[in-house]
Computed example of a mutant assay.
Amino acid sequence: AVCDPVYPVYVDTNVMAGRTGEYNTVRENFDGVIYMPCRKENGFLPELPSEVPDLIYLCFPNNPTGSAITKDELQKWVDYANKNGCVIIYDAAYEAYISEENVPHSIYECEGARTCAIELRSFSKNAGFTGVRLGFTVIPKELVRDGVSLHSLWARRHGTKFNGAPYIVQKAGEAVYSEAGKAQLKDQVGYYMRNAKLIHDELAKAGFSVSGGVNAPYIWLETPDKMTSWEFFDYLLKNANVVGTPGSGFGSHGEGYFRLTAFGTYENTLKAIDRIKSL
């Protein structure tokens, strides 16, 4: 609605694989999308694109790689967007899991972000609201493109097409920000990050190449013996009774990788890691 044509840029091996236009069988991706591969060589962080997009989608801390971006690196994206007239859609669903001081909890910690960025927040990951469906979008009034206020545009669309979250869900969301709620969320996040540290450290000791698990509840590991991600899925299920997610499901650059999550009990996590290590 803001720019036509729209050329979004998505991070490959991210929550959004990026689908638009016609599928290109030679490149094995979709036309109209600028892909930013997240590889081991670049620390699973996207690099600034050579082509200038209208929309940039970033997700940090990242699903599935578990990578996080420092404030200095994120500032580069904000400066790039302001210089080129891009709009950043910043998905901060895993913000509650950040543990390192140099990793920003919001893109608005960066100077100039209010004139180029939209931030998405979810209650699903920090408060376990996955089935409850509650979140919010931040669109600063300073964000204007082609003379159009995106805040006003969103308010008009939201006011005419959305009736709001149910009252009982709103009350649950309110409880998240109470003193008791914040304490309970801190304990829950800490519990899952204890699992993440266990998975990361024990697999690293066992010789796996692993990343993530520090600022996100995901561990991203290279599949052993040059297995494809689906071959490793079958191998792990058959020999260890452990289920994870093949990396190829997140985009072409996810091939050769595998995602494990920390969303389980500590006891079951310990059992699963022991089974993997015994293979």
Rank of each mutant, 00 (worst) to 15 (best):
G264I: 01
T25F: 06
Y218E: 13
L221V: 00
A172E: 09
H200Y: 12
A117P: 09
I89T: 06
P140R: 01
Y80R: 02
A155R: 13
T65V: 10
A240C: 15
E109C: 09
S106Q: 01
P46Y: 01
N82R: 14
I107C: 07
K277W: 05
S149I: 05
Y177D: 10
T65G: 05
R19A: 13
D146L: 06
N195C: 05
E101K: 13
E119S: 02
Y35M: 12
S278E: 14
A240V: 02
N63R: 07
N29G: 00
G159I: 02
R27W: 09
V26M: 12
D91R: 08
K171F: 03
E109Q: 15
L221C: 09
K141Y: 14
T115M: 07
A206N: 11
W230L: 14
S229D: 07
Y266V: 05
V214F: 03
K186Q: 11
S99L: 11
A240D: 11
R133I: 10
V144A: 04
R19Y: 12
K238N: 11
L198Q: 13
K226C: 07
N102I: 04
R133S: 12
A96D: 07
A17K: 14
R259H: 01
M36E: 09
A155E: 15
P64E: 04
V15T: 12
Y177V: 09
S211L: 01
D54G: 07
V26K: 15
L260H: 02
Q188S: 15
L143E: 04
F123C: 11
N241F: 14
D91K: 10
S106D: 03
D274L: 03
G32I: 03
G43K: 01
T115S: 14
E111K: 11
R39C: 10
D234P: 00
H151K: 12
S124Q: 08
F208I: 05
N24A: 11
K171V: 06
V103L: 09
E267K: 15
Q170I: 08
R114P: 00
Y218R: 04
L236E: 14
D225C: 03
S67P: 00
A17I: 12
L58S: 03
F123I: 01
T13N: 14
T20M: 13
G212W: 04
A127W: 04
V242G: 10
V243P: 00
G254F: 01
K40A: 13
N42H: 07
D187L: 15
F60S: 04
P104I: 07
A68H: 02
N195M: 02
V2H: 02
E119P: 01
K271S: 08
